[in-house]
Amino acid sequence: MSDSGHHITPFKTYIIVYGVLLCFTVLTVVVAPSVTGVERNLMNTLLAMGIATVKASLVILWFMHQKYENNFNRIVFGAGFFFLIVLVFFSALDIFSRYNMINEFGK
């Protein structure tokens, strides 16, 4: 971006993003087991996390102006999520390869 100024997101865009965020909040509530009383399972956890990720993406792209960031800052911020995935993956690998041991221990 040049010295002449920084990108200005139009007012209307902010309002639309906000509206969509509210719609997804309603959606995540109306499909939730705590609200509807459906059985809790992995599917509705994944659904809720999927909706949360869509909402998070909207916030990152438009409210945090990541859509207009340079690639260097994208990589910097993206690195956070990359290492989070590394943390999840190896922790899960470790814990669930000992899952039977934990179950035995709990009995």
Binding site: A32, S34, T45, A48, M49
Partner: peptide
Amino acid sequence: WIYLFPLLYLV
């Protein structure tokens, strides 16, 4: 909070 809300309250 976008992640905390469904994790704690909903699923």
